[in-house]
Design a protein around this nucleic acid. Structure first.
Lengths: 338, 338
DNA sequence: ATGAAAGCGCTAACAT
DNA sequence: ATGTTAGCGCTTTCAT
C-alpha cells in the first residue's frame, strides 16, 4: 500500500524508448504508430501500471472536456431523485461520462455553492433540479455558456432545455377520476408553492374541479406542506371541516405519506379516497393499495442526459422543453366512492 | 448564451496590472499580497467573471488533490444505497469535497471500469461497496496507494478500512425474538451468498436457532434470491412445506418485499410472522407494520467518509474495521405468535 | 510584498 | 511513422 508516484507518459516513453507523443497516440488509439512500436508502448505501460491522467489531458486538449457532468438535485436520498440520478447515470455511461452529484436541499445558497464547485471542476454540462424560485444562479451559469438542462421544473429564463412531466394534465385527470366516482368534496394538499410542480398540480386540480362542475372550496386547499409532518397536521385539519372531504388529492410523495398516516390513524383509509402524485415503493402493498400518478422517471432522466450531451456536442438548435407523460395508476385508494 | 472563453488568471493579472502569482495568492487567500493590490485583483476577477480552474490547480499543486472522492455502490437507486450516498455527500461537503458516484450493479466488469474511470480522474479517495466475491480490482487499486474504504462489506484483503453493520448479531437477535414467541419453524430467505452480508445474516440465523435449541430445517432455507421476484417464488415454495413455517426471516430489503407480496396474496400476512433485514419507507404503514432490523445508514456513511478523509490526510495507522450497531424495530409483523 | 521562470502531465501544431 | 516544440492554467521555487 505504499505511495509510489503514479507513472506518467514520460516514464512509459522512456521505457519504450519512444517519444511522449507516440505514447499519447498509442494510449488514445490514434493512428500514426507502427504496430511494433505500439506493442512496445503497451507493454511498457502495462509493466509500469500506467494510467492516463484525464485531468492533465482535459487541460491541454482543445475541447477541454472532462468527461464528467454535474447533477444537482434537491435530495439524492429521495426515491424520486435517486431514481432520476440512476437514469442519468446510465445514459451518461454510454458516453463514457461520469456524474458528480450533489443535493441542494432546496436551499439557494447550497445551490449556488454546488454550482460553483461544479464549475470549478469544469464539468462538461449539468442536469439541475432548480431550487424553487431561485434560478438566478442557474441563469448566470447558463449565460456563461455552460450546457445545462433543467429537470422536473422548467427554467424561468430563456435559452435552456428542460424535461418535465405532465403535472397539470395528470393532476386534472386524477381529480376528474375522483369526480366521476361521485366525489363532490375533494381536498388538495400540496408542497411548497415556490415549486413550479406544485403550482402546476394545483392548477390541474382547479381545472379538474371546473371540468367536473365542482365548486372550489378554499377551506379544502392546503399548500406549502414541506414534509410528511406538515402534511399530517394539514390532513387532520381538513378532516375536521364540514362537510368533510370525501377524497384527497395529495400532490407530492411525502405529502401523500403524511396524509395516509392520518387516514390510517383515524381508520378512514377505507372510506376517504386518496390519489397521490408520484409513485412510491410498496404503494401496491398498502390497504387499500394507493392510486397514484406515476411519472416515467427513467424516461425523464434519459431525456435530460441526452439533451445535455447534445448541447455539449455543440447542438445550437432552439431550446427544447420535453414533456414526459405520466400515468394514473388505479390501485384502489382512488376508487373509493363517497 | 455565447461561448466566450473562460477568463484565466492571466486575464485577471493583466487587468489588475499584477503578476499571475499575485492573483494566485489573492484567489487562494494566501499571505503576501497587500490589501490595496488584493482589492484590485478581486475587482478585476469579479469584473471578468473569473473562476479558478481546479483541474489546472490540482495538476500543478504538490498534493495533487482534486477535492473529489469516488463513491461506487451497487445501485444508486436502491434506498439503502442512496441514503448511504447522501450521508457520504453530507460529510464530504464539510471538507469542500464533491462526490463522483457510480453504480456497479454487482457486476465485476462494471466495478472494474468504474474504478478505472475514477482513477483516471484522479479522485482523492474512494468509498466502495464491493461486488460480491470480486475484490481483486479493489485490491489492486488499493495497492497503488489509493485511499479506499469499503462499506457494507469488509475487504477480503488486508490493509483497508471498512464500515459494516452488526449483521450477524442482529440477525441472531431477530431469530431469537421469533423463537421466544414460540416459533419452531423459522424460514430463512436470503440474497446472493457471494455477498458477505448474506453469509453473515445466515450465520446469525443459524446461531439464533442454535441458541434457541431449534433444529435447522434445511428445507426452510432459501438463499441466492436476487430481487423480489426470486423471493416471491421462494416464499411460495416455502409455504408449501410441511410443517409450514410459522415465521420468516428475510435477510435483505428486496427479499422482504417479495415475501410480503406472497403472504398478502395468500392472506397469511396476519398469521405468519415476518422480520426483515433493512428498514424501508412505509414499513410502519403496512398491515401488520413490518418488524425490521434497521441499520444506522447515516452513521455508516459518515464514518466511511471520515475514514477516507483521514487516509487522504495521510493517516497511516492500522486499518480500522468499524461496526455500526443495527436495531430491531418491533412493529407487529415480527410479534405474531405461531 | 511582488514577480519571473519552470514545470505538473498531457495534447496541438507543426516538423522530419 | 515518429519526434520536437510549445503551452493548457495553474502552483512551485526562487528571486528581488
Amino acid at each position: 500500500m505504499d505511495e509510489r508516484r503514479e507513472p506518467t507518459m514520460r516514464d512509459v516513453a522512456a521505457l519504450a524508448r519512444v517519444s511522449v507523443k507516440t505514447v499519447s497516440r498509442v494510449v488514445n488509439g490514434l493512428p500514426g504508430a507502427g504496430p511494433e512500436v505500439a506493442e512496445r508502448v503497451r507493454a511498457a505501460a502495462r509493466s509500469l501500471g500506467y494510467r492516463p491522467n484525464l485531468t492533465a489531458s482535459s487541460l491541454r486538449r482543445s475541447d477541454k472536456r472532462s468527461a464528467t457532468i454535474g447533477v444537482l438535485f434537491e435530495d439524492l436520498s429521495n426515491p424520486f431523485d435517486s431514481a432520476l440520478l440512476r437514469a442519468v447515470e446510465d445514459r451518461a455511461r454510454q458516453n463514457g461520462v461520469l456524474v458528480l452529484a450533489g443535493s441542494s436541499e432546496d436551499e439557494p445558497h447550497l445551490q449556488r455553492e454546488l454550482l460553483e464547485s461544479l464549475a470549478t471542476r469544469r464539468v462538461d454540462g449539468m442536469v439541475v433540479m432548480a431550487v424553487g424560485g431561485h434560478q438566478d444562479a442557474l441563469q448566470q451559469e447558463r449565460e456563461r455558456g455552460t450546457p445545462m438542462v433543467l429537470v422536473d421544473r422548467p427554467p424561468t429564463f430563456g435559452g435552456t432545455d428542460s424535461v418535465t412531466t405532465t403535472n397539470r394534465d395528470s393532476s386534472r385527470e386524477a381529480v376528474l377520476h375522483l369526480a366521476e366516482l361521485g366525489h363532490r368534496h375533494i381536498a388538495f394538499l400540496g408542497d411548497r408553492q415556490t415549486l413550479w410542480t406544485s403550482q402546476e398540480r394545483y392548477t390541474g386540480y382547479l381545472e379538474g374541479l371546473a371540468h367536473a362542475g365542482l365548486k372550489l372550496r378554499e377551506d379544502l386547499v392546503r399548500t406549502d406542506l414541506k414534509g410528511p409532518d406538515a402534511a399530517e397536521r394539514a390532513t387532520a385539519e381538513l378532516l375536521a371541516r364540514d362537510p368533510r372531504p370525501t377524497a384527497l388529492f395529495t400532490a407530492q410523495n411525502l405529502v401523500t405519506v403524511g396524509a395516509m398516516r392520518v387516514l390510517r390513524a383515524r381508520d378512514l383509509h377505507q372510506r376517504v379516497a386518496l390519489i397521490g402524485f408520484d409513485d412510491f415503493p410498496l404503494a401496491d402493498m398498502l390497504q387499500p393499495a394507493v392510486t397514484v400518478v406515476r411519472q416515467d422517471v427513467p424516461a425523464l432522466g434519459r431525456k435530460a442526459a441526452e439533451l445535455v450531451f447534445a448541447r455539449i456536442e455543440g447542438d445550437t438548435s432552439p431550446p427544447v422543453h420535453a414533456v414526459v407523460p405520466a400515468t394514473l395508476v388505479r390501485r384502489g385508494s382512488g376508487e373509493i366512492r363517497p
